[in-house]
Design a protein around this nucleic acid. Sequence first.
DNA 1: TATGAATGAGGTTTCATTCAT
DNA 2: AATGAATGAAACCTCATTCAT
Lengths: 188, 188, 188, 188
Amino acid sequence: MNKQEQIQATALRLFVADGFHGTPTAKIAAEAGVANGTLFYHYKTKEDLVVALYNRIKDEHADNLQAIISRDDFITTKFKNIFIHSVNWALNNRDKFYYIQQFNSSPHLAQVSAETLEQHTIGYAGFIAEGVKKKLLKQQPVGLIIAIFNGHVYGLYQYLTSAKFEPEEQEKIINEAYEMLWDTMKYM
Amino acid sequence: MNKQEQIQATALRLFVADGFHGTPTAKIAAEAGVANGTLFYHYKTKEDLVVALYNRIKDEHADNLQAIISRDDFITTKFKNIFIHSVNWALNNRDKFYYIQQFNSSPHLAQVSAETLEQHTIGYAGFIAEGVKKKLLKQQPVGLIIAIFNGHVYGLYQYLTSAKFEPEEQEKIINEAYEMLWDTMKYM
Amino acid sequence: MNKQEQIQATALRLFVADGFHGTPTAKIAAEAGVANGTLFYHYKTKEDLVVALYNRIKDEHADNLQAIISRDDFITTKFKNIFIHSVNWALNNRDKFYYIQQFNSSPHLAQVSAETLEQHTIGYAGFIAEGVKKKLLKQQPVGLIIAIFNGHVYGLYQYLTSAKFEPEEQEKIINEAYEMLWDTMKYM
Amino acid sequence: MNKQEQIQATALRLFVADGFHGTPTAKIAAEAGVANGTLFYHYKTKEDLVVALYNRIKDEHADNLQAIISRDDFITTKFKNIFIHSVNWALNNRDKFYYIQQFNSSPHLAQVSAETLEQHTIGYAGFIAEGVKKKLLKQQPVGLIIAIFNGHVYGLYQYLTSAKFEPEEQEKIINEAYEMLWDTMKYM
DNA sequence: TATGAATGAGGTTTCATTCAT
DNA sequence: AATGAATGAAACCTCATTCAT
């Protein structure tokens, strides 16, 4: 892990624990084991670091989804896999998921160009559009379907993290939540 | 509007625009038209102001919902009304809705006692529990239903604010989204 | 002397001794006996302080000259008095005079509007124009005469400060330098 | 142009535009097209670069004057040539001339030994002394004459750079300013 | 109840300089 | 002779908070 990665990993941990503004750059540098100036050698400003971290996580998640979308499965299978994967990714990467939420409801979001934001959902949107076109999904705008899909993931995540569930229990809940989502999404 | 209210109204506007930490107390005071010290006369600390604002908005929203719940309607009607009202409230009070999100995904949340948080959903939870018991809603934990309900509201809100819709168009979308939600929630 | 004046007086002393950039704001505050933040309460930035100091000294000097110009003397007498006064002012306020030089040959000068700069010479320029018109001074552009006048003052100042002269000796040199200047300036 | 010269040329340009302290070494290196470390390979410190640049310019100017002084002309002709040349050099090398002013009114000046400073005027001073001795110039101390001479050059320069003059107009002004200077300097 | 000058701890950022390559 | 990543001291500035009025 090079210094840039050390900085990003430490920043993620601290941002999630204390918030963007609750985390001094000096603390990030210290805990990452680099000098104060090194952080600013790699990121022009603190804001730069915040945004870079966001983009990296988004990219990482988008790449994962892309891998699922590219697989040679039925659309309905893909749809389920995307849901299951998204929820599990969120649960297994709570810091990253929380960071994305935090970032999305902060003024930092304005620093990310609409273009960049769109690219994070591009493969995804194409896939949903196909599902709508083939009348496997409800005849609603792609944007609406994605938004509700994400809301569903978010709601389920909130529930699962509000208490401690056993692995099997958790799996069962996810599957049931998927059935509920499918009731919402399926054509007819 | 007295000075306290001026301060809260200004704080809300600025917090939403620039974030909690992007908004100095001095700026709030200046734009509220009061002296620097006045803010601290009414709120012991900045954090106090942040939390007081959160609680006031939450209370306001909870009171609205309670009014709907208390009406002498069928449960299913109430359910729909709550959804419609929640979405419309969010759309008509974007600053307040955004503020709640922002607050929820920030370390400030820890300042609010679990007790206080619970009180905001108490009437609401009872109503859902009744729906489950009477087999009008899916046989799932109340917490899960509420979480998914909120996720649905949130997803729809995101969609409706991602572009400019005409009033009638918006209303139509909300109704369709409600149908989708109902598909998820209804028993059988 | 209020805090603002303490800050300006200390800043002048330190800027002259160590230069603008060689003088930390923290040092100014400390030696002025005020808190660090107090400096920034009165001057938005360090640059602000630098410019305010410049303007105050310029104003002070311009007021002095104006007093001489306003006296009911012959123009030639005024001319001599202005020269003598300027040189003596420079010698008795070395810090201020040096500060002006330092400022004039620094990028800070660009922060002062042309308008402000002009106001510092306005009474002065009118007086020279009158002398030219009445054929007491050489028939040259007012700007050129002022520039050479200032150059002469500056040159004499440099000489007088290059070594230690006795008061009478100094007075004699100033008078002789005035005669030299007058040879340059007089009509015919 | 080798790397050292690139660095000096870039440094001059940037120092004049932004001041010594307004110009980071990193910027000099970048704009000179060399690596950060290269600057420090050639100059031990930034101060070293600043002083080296000063000395190089001073030497260059002194060499020019020496060439004029060495010519087999009448003293009065030399005197005029030195003045004309000095003004023209300043006008044609505004960056260098400005740099010298800036340096002279900065704490950097203290880094240059008195000895070095003297060497820059040595030939010059001898020539003036001769003029005084031969009663071609006023019977005043050499130092005073040089100081006023320089003040005159400086004043004229200020005037000529305060506005845009046509070449012929400029030449005429310089000649008239010379006549004014000569009125000051000439014996009787 | 309200003010606003004053505070000082602490934050982000800059930048001359070093050093392994 | 040249590089550029890394450094850390120190700079400027912000801002929540206090307090005498």
